[in-house]
Nucleic acid binder design. Structure first.
Lengths: 214, 214
DNA sequence: GTTGTAGCGCTACAGCTGTTCATATAGGAG
DNA sequence: CTCCTATATGAACAGCTGTAGCGCTACAAC
């Protein structure tokens, strides 16, 4: 009889070593979301969270930065998936742009810590996070579709998308970083930004009057 | 003869103990700007930087958080001073709004780390940083002056200012967090945002054509 | 049954951290 | 002169960190 007591949490079968890798990434994302910053995350805390020896992390990631980077890449994938799902669920170029944009906001609201890490981590300067450019391309494409459909004044789609991204990111960032301040609903602000920056009129918005202001 | 060697860096005279406090704050700001985050800053590193015993910091600040908070408050004061100086140097409500807004950008460009800490530190959630509301008031006032002068369509100045702040903060934040990406000039983007969000036409801008787009 | 190896743990090291307590010293007040 | 206090230091504690090296065990292949 092997001495049980607190066993070593069931080793994975052969060829399935990646399961631990997945668990590590999941725990890393959980902790990053709680902490809201990568500097405070310790490799040991991750290992502790899933009840694994700290050194076992090194079997899957060369060092701490690689671990965080892998987690952030996964995180970005999830976010983009949510955006794309929202876009395809909506009908019409304007509604799709609006849905994708709003999804960014709701995702940030649900995972404020991860939003912070993804966009504010100093890893952005130390590591190659070019995968994040995908968001820029997606937004630009959505804006261009509105222009092509004649639902927004024709302009440089990349520039307009940049302005929109900056504004939405700013609005979200302020809310994420100072959650206790009395912010107005994000949805209204996004609709204003869509109207003023892109020039579209979000028809399925709650109150179409807001678009007639200017 | 007192045993010199490496002396204890000249104690301050009676009643001038606050000089060390100032030095500590200055060093804290220096380090925060380098690190671009408060989590990585250690009280001991600050003490080391000005060649003072770590415990001497406790004579002026009860703990680490208080030190960072004091530094950030000073930081905010400096920023607001720069904004106000830029505003008073400009003539006309529109130019003043534009000058104040652009100063935010140049300040962030000069002190990217401090900008990050000031706006992204998790201290925002743990501590009372209500002093930051000053920026909202200043911006709202500047926007309102444009409206009062008939240079911008009349609207809820607080809402318009919020949108402008969000957009500018977003534009700056993206540049600060990913400095290696090929960003277009901030000045042009700010002018677009002023035009589209506030409805003013920055007359003294380099190229007035850009305002005629929409 | 023997053996190789994938999968993971244990121990240890050197270094850092925030904070506390007791101590020293210089210089003005009396 | 003496004394007191503002100004600063030093040693120490308990805890954390990333990482290296070596050891163990269960299973698949032979």
């Amino acid at each position: 009889m092997p001495p049980t007591g607190r066993q070593q949490r069931g080793r994975n079968p052969r060829g399935e070593g990646n399961r631990l890798r997945e668990e590590i990434i999941a725990a890393t994302l959980r902790l990053l979301d709680e902490l809201g910053g990568d500097q405070a995350l310790s490799l040991r805390a991750v290992a502790r969270d899933i009840e694994v020896a700290a050194t076992s992390v090194y079997l899957h990631f060369p060092d701490r930065d690689a671990l965080v980077l892998a987690a952030l890449e996964r995180c970005h994938q999830d976010l983009m998936l949510a955006v794309q799902r929202a876009e395809t669920a909506a009908e019409g170029p304007v509604a799709r742009l609006r849905a994708g944009t709003l999804t960014l906001g709701t995702w940030a609201h649900d995972h404020p810590g991860l939003y912070k890490v993804l966009h504010e981590s100093t890893l952005n300067q130390r590591a190659d996070m070019r995968f994040k450019e995908e968001l820029a391309l997606t937004t630009t494409a959505a804006v261009r579709r509105c222009m092509d459909a004649g639902l927004a004044p024709r302009d440089d789609a990349a520039v307009v998308a940049l302005d929109l991204r900056a504004a939405v990111h700013g609005a979200v960032s302020m809310r994420v970083n100072q959650p206790d301040l009395p912010w107005p609903p994000l949805e209204e602000q996004v609709d204003r930004l869509l109207t003023k920056l892109v020039g579209v009129a979000p028809e399925d918005s709650a109150d179409p009057r807001s678009a007639a202001g200017r």
